[in-house]
């Protein structure tokens, strides 16, 4: 769905998304890293369970909410990708307990 421009040096920053290793470039947001790795869907909605992907990438739409290193509901477009980050995509409604 997305590709790097050919002149851009290789990506060598590694993180995981739902347990799958992906590589990113320093300066990528978590959302950009996911899109570059072909992970378009970042959550399913709490209301209907519909799949969603980032919409605005500038912090206003909140479509890219993911869990990063155990902290839920973080805007993936506002968090820089860091080595070793553990990202989980959103799984809809929160369950009690």
């Amino acid at each position: 769905m997305f590709r790097r421009l050919s002149e851009i040096e290789e990506t060598n920053l590694n993180l995981t998304v739902d347990g799958q290793g992906i590589s990113a470039r320093a300066g990528d947001s978590v959302a950009a890293a996911m899109l570059a790795a072909g992970i378009i869907q970042c959550r399913i909605t709490p209301v209907s369970g519909a799949p969603r992907a980032p919409w605005c990438l500038m912090g206003v739409c909140f479509e890219c909410l993911v869990t990063i290193d155990g902290i839920a509901n973080r805007q993936a477009c506002l968090v820089r990708a860091r080595p070793g980050m553990d990202v989980e995509t959103g799984r809809g409604k929160r369950e009690v307990g």
Binding site: M1, F2, R3, R4, L5, I8, R25, G27, D28, S29, A32, A33, L35, A36
Partner: peptide, 8 residues
């Protein structure tokens, strides 16, 4: 910010 363009 990431030098990404769409593919497809």
């Amino acid at each position: 910010s990431s030098g990404l363009i769409t593919r497809g």
